Computed example of a mutant assay.
Amino acid sequence: MGIVKIEDGLHEDIRKASTVMCRSINAQAEFWIRVGMLAETNPTQTFNEIIARQLKDADLELSDFAAA
Rank of each mutant, 00 (worst) to 15 (best):
I51A: 10
A39P: 05
Q54Y: 04
S24D: 03
N48Q: 14
A39S: 15
T41G: 02
A27F: 00
I25C: 09
T19Q: 15
Q45I: 06
R23L: 14
D59T: 08
D59W: 00
L38F: 06
E40C: 12
A58H: 06
D57M: 10
V35C: 07
F31A: 15
A29F: 08
R34H: 09
P43D: 12
S24A: 08
T41I: 04
R34T: 09
P43L: 00
A29G: 04
L38E: 14
I51Y: 07
P43N: 03
C22N: 15
F47K: 12
E61Q: 14
S24G: 01
I33Y: 05
T41K: 06
K56R: 13
F47T: 12
L55V: 09
C22A: 12
D59L: 11
I50C: 13
S18F: 07
C22W: 02
M37V: 15
E40D: 13
A27K: 07
E30L: 09
E61P: 01
F47H: 07
Q54E: 15
A52P: 02
F31Q: 15
E30N: 05
Q28F: 07
Q28L: 07
D59Q: 11
V20Y: 03
T41M: 00
F47A: 14
A58M: 14
F31P: 09
Q28R: 03
Q45M: 12
D57S: 10
T41C: 04
N26I: 05
E61T: 10
N26A: 11
E40H: 00
G36W: 02
F47Y: 11
R23Y: 01
F47D: 14
R23F: 06
Q28V: 01
L60F: 15
I51W: 00
N26H: 06
L60V: 15
F31V: 14
S18M: 05
K56V: 13
I50L: 15
D59N: 15
Q45C: 07
T19S: 12
L38C: 03
M21C: 10
E40Y: 02
Q28P: 03
K56P: 04
P43T: 08
N26Q: 05
A39I: 12
I25R: 08
W32F: 09
Q28T: 09
N42C: 01
V35L: 15
T44R: 08
A52Q: 04
Q45D: 13
E30F: 02
L60A: 05
K56E: 13
A27R: 01
N42D: 09
I51R: 04
F47R: 13
S18C: 07
R53Y: 03
C22P: 05
S24P: 00
G36M: 13
A58G: 11
E49A: 14
A27I: 07
E49N: 14
